[in-house]
């Protein structure tokens, strides 16, 4: 019998061993290190710089005066908001658009996820495909496609006019309706998948059991399915809300109003007022965080017992 007791690890392994020793947790740390370093360098530090710039003073010829400390940017944004000026209207518009889109998105996503869950075979594949394909298409294109459809001379108005449902074209685009539909189309696929992934784990038998106990079908779904998919609904709500309040492409292309995202771009690239842009971003992030927290608390409350009666 050949004995092969001698170990001959490759020199590469030997170098690795010298570096990382033998402890499993040190090896784990070494493997996680690149990701942690990346998140620190490209996410955490940049955010501290954003915070730092938001408390620097502005400058006439530079984007900001480095090395200075000042709360001017915050006070000017807050004063502007409190006097119901431009920042106030931008803030309200962003939140109204975000809130409205979120409510409609989550409602439709629940229904669509349910339809995917209940269907099978080709229909199921087609419905899933219809969710995944837009997800993989750039939001520029997703938004752009609504222009020929929704403009006053667009396809939808042509149809409405020819059916005599309206006497003159409705101006969806540019306008808040167009922006809302565009934004809805951007976030809907994510919301559907978030809810569907939870729904797919539910046993249909529980709905049958509810019906067996005398609930009508829509009612049994609302009473039994909705509470169970609450984790998915919460994810869908948070994503829809965060992205819609901060929406840029849909309102930029399909409406003439300013959302905070669009205005920040102007502040930064056109006006070169870095501290104000940074301060406004920070304020909006804080407001979004608070409202998301409130939404989360409300939904969690409903999570256990969804009593409509």
């Amino acid at each position: 019998m050949t004995t092969t007791n001698t170990h001959d690890p490759s020199s590469f392994d030997r170098i690795r061993d010298a570096v990382i020793g033998q402890s499993n947790s040190r090896r784990a740390l070494l493997l996680m290190a690149p990701l942690i370093a990346f998140e620190l360098l490209v996410f955490v530090i940049p955010f501290f710089i954003l915070l730092r710039i938001s408390v620097a003073s502005g400058s006439a010829d530079l984007p900001y005066e480095s090395g200075t400390w000042s709360l001017d940017a915050y006070s000017s944004v807050i004063e502007n908001i409190l006097s119901f000026d431009l920042f106030w209207s931008i803030l309200v518009y962003s939140f109204v658009l975000g809130g409205a889109v979120t409510i409609v998105t989550v409602g439709i996503a629940l229904f669509y996820a349910y339809a995917i869950w209940r269907s099978n075979g080709l229909v199921k594949s087609l419905l899933l495909f219809s969710v995944i394909l837009p997800l993989l298409t750039t939001l520029v294109i997703r938004t752009y496609a609504f222009t020929p459809l929704l403009s006053p001379t667009g396809t939808v108005n042509d149809i409405l006019l020819s059916l005599n449902l309206v006497s003159e074209p409705i101006q969806f685009v540019p306008g808040i309706v167009g922006a809302g539909i565009g934004q809805l189309y951007i976030v809907l696929p994510y919301a559907v998948l978030a809810i569907y992934s939870v729904m797919a784990t539910i046993d249909w038998d529980i709905v049958e059991a509810a019906r067996d106990l005398g609930a009508s079908r829509p009612r049994s779904v609302v009473e039994v399915v909705v509470p169970q998919v609450m984790p998915g609904v919460i994810v869908a709500t948070v994503i829809s809300f965060a992205w819609s309040v901060g929406s840029y492409a849909a309102p930029g292309l399909l409406s003439e109003n300013l959302t905070f995202a669009i205005y920040i771009e102007t502040l930064l690239l056109t006006d070169q007022r870095y501290p104000v842009a940074a301060a406004f971003s920070v304020i909006m992030l804080v407001l979004m965080l608070i409202s998301t927290g409130v939404l989360f608390a409300i939904l969690n409350r409903f999570g256990g017992d969804f009593d409509l009666a």
Partner: peptide
């Protein structure tokens, strides 16, 4: 929001 990430 990607805009905030973008400017940051």
């Amino acid at each position: 929001p990607p805009v905030v990430l973008g400017i940051t």
